[in-house]
């Protein structure tokens, strides 16, 4: 069986052969689900977001240039969905100006740059993005508040890959 490239699959979908969309779904669901699960602990929420990502991509597929790679575009949609998710649960974190500069940013991580963090840094940063306060994290890790702040600042600088808020 000949494996089709993403470009060929998109071309077929644009031609009305929408059953080929299942190939894209099968190819990317795992990676996108794992990526979203790093940020959202609840399974149901993560699954909903994955579904929204693929639905948004399907709706935009007519405008999508099949010459461009699919993966970065999907992750762009993932970023937008995560922003909306956090906003809806009032978990958007206002980044302090002295930490990351003038522009308001929402930090998006992927698996590759989380690898640069230590286990503690990763756990603390994920708790921050799930909405835990610094005080709660300090209590949980039994460390002073200023220590937690320093760890978070260092971790963010290590993984910093900012996306401009549009």
């Amino acid at each position: 069986m000949i494996e089709l490239s993403d470009r060929d699959i998109i071309a077929k979908i644009k031609n009305g052969e929408i059953d080929y969309y299942s190939l894209l779904v099968k190819k990317y669901t795992d990676t996108i689900y794992r990526f979203i699960k790093l940020k959202i602990r609840k399974d149901e929420d993560a699954e909903d977001l994955v579904q929204n990502v693929f639905i948004s991509f399907y709706k935009a597929i007519e405008r999508f240039d099949e010459a461009k790679p699919v993966r970065p575009y999907l992750y762009q949609i993932v970023g937008n969905e995560l922003k909306m998710f956090y906003r809806s649960r009032k978990q958007v974190l206002q980044l302090k100006e002295d930490m990351v500069g003038e522009t308001e940013e929402v930090m998006i991580f992927d698996e590759s740059n989380l690898k640069v963090l230590s286990k503690t840094e990763k756990e603390i940063l994920l708790l921050v993005y799930e909405g835990a306060s610094y005080e709660e994290i300090a209590e949980q890790f039994k460390k002073p508040l200023n220590t937690i702040r320093s760890i978070i600042r260092r971790a963010r600088l290590k993984v910093k890959r900012p996306y401009e808020k549009t």
Binding site: Y21, S22, V25, K26, T29, Y33, V50, I55
Partner: peptide, 9 residues
Amino acid sequence: LEKNILDKI
């Protein structure tokens, strides 16, 4: 999950 996605699509 894949089945649910395709159902919605």
